[in-house]
Design a protein around this nucleic acid. Structure first.
Lengths: 219, 219
DNA sequence: ACCTGAACACCGTTCAAGT
DNA sequence: ACCTGAACACCGTTCAAGT
């Protein structure tokens, strides 16, 4: 083991994974993913950039640990919900979206990493348990889990991108409306209210309901 | 209009958007998104990096144009399919996945941009048209479109990440299997074959089918 | 009009050397 | 053992100056 510890001798370390992770998530919330650099994080910890590499092998490693931390407690959503299997699965998906939304660019951080920590594995195991208890075979449950998770990440990626769409930016709803009505897009024009709506919870619930309805009919 | 043109006088330009875009997609396929830098692209075009900024305002702008180009022809999938509305919607989703898979890191490029070009708008309009013709109201069609698109992007993001998972990497299936069986994840263990399967087409079809089944029951 | 050359203000990562 | 200082090999972007 070459990970840092302090068996009695030497100055106490000024850095540790837990505190660094908290500071990194703080910095993420304040400045966004693009501004989260190893140097700026080091500044916030009052340390030189190189020192971070004693605790995280790479920046990717740091981001993976951040994603894992974001998923802390998400699996518990299944327990605190007294519905059938589909309500429990919905609760897990909602808790995942909420966890990603809790941090600026949370979905981007999550999508860009592949944690195998206890929080995501616990989440996945809980979801699989809910479906297996409902009678789904293991492979169907696995595929359903991927589907729900991929939809949730894809949705929240869009949601957070739209959230930070400054006026005139690439995701500005007014600019989109202008482009659509100027072009030959009759069907888009007909759906414009819903297409440029900012009621992302309703959009998420719509998609989630489609998925669950599909699962119910397969059962 | 300050975009470059060549009305008779001066040397013919060595750069143009179309050729630069082709070279950029080539470079993407050969080296991946992380290695796609303005400097390397400039090298491939035998030009200095600064020259690219006459054709693309920012790197983000270049990436958006690349995403738009990837979607070229995807909307046509609805026409070349003689099924009901749900088969046509499925054909559109499959064509989108195929288009993203056609380039290394295609889903990452797409997810990181927000094109409002004619290819994505045409795709969206076609999908909306299919659903409206089937009797869906405009706002339901819009939400269904988002759901299918978000699922497709989320899935393909995962798929391409898994595709490039080198041994021992963060998405290595063997490493995941070891972690799962070592920990207390009974339900994950039961689903391991499907969880670590590389049959992504089957996984995609499973999710797509869930979505379409949900839509059919709502209609 | 189109591109070069050079600069500006950064990056992630490594590692000898200090304490 | 833990961190500094300094370097290495890069980035995206801007812009005066050349042709």
């Amino acid at each position: 083991m070459s990970s840092p510890s302090n068996p009695g001798r030497g100055r106490p370390p000024r850095l540790d994974r837990a505190r660094t992770l908290r500071t990194a998530l703080d910095l993420l919330d304040r400045s966004g993913l693009d501004a989260l650099t190893m140097r700026r994080l080091a500044d916030a910890m009052e340390v030189q950039a190189g020192a971070l590499y004693r605790y995280f092998a790479t920046k990717q490693d740091l981001l993976t640990a951040m994603a894992e931390r974001m998923m802390d407690g998400v699996a518990d959503a299944a327990g605190t919900c007294d519905g059938d299997w589909s309500e429990q699965l919905a609760a897990l998906a909602r808790a995942m979206r909420t966890a990603l939304l809790a941090h600026r660019d949370g979905a981007r951080v999550f999508a860009g990493t592949h944690s195998t920590g206890e929080n995501i594995l616990g989440f996945a195991d809980t979801a699989m348990g809910v479906m297996r208890a409902a009678g789904f075979p293991g492979d169907d449950a696995a595929r359903a889990l991927y589907t729900v998770a991929n939809f949730t990440v894809g949705h929240t990626l869009e949601e957070q991108a739209a959230l930070q769409a400054e006026d005139g930016g690439p995701a500005d709803p007014d600019a989109l409306a202008d482009t659509v009505t100027a072009g030959a897009y009759p069907h888009l024009t007909a759906g414009l209210p819903a297409l440029t709506s900012t009621d992302f919870t309703r959009l998420f619930e719509f998609g989630l309901d489609l998925l669950l309805e599909g699962l119910r009919s397969r059962r």
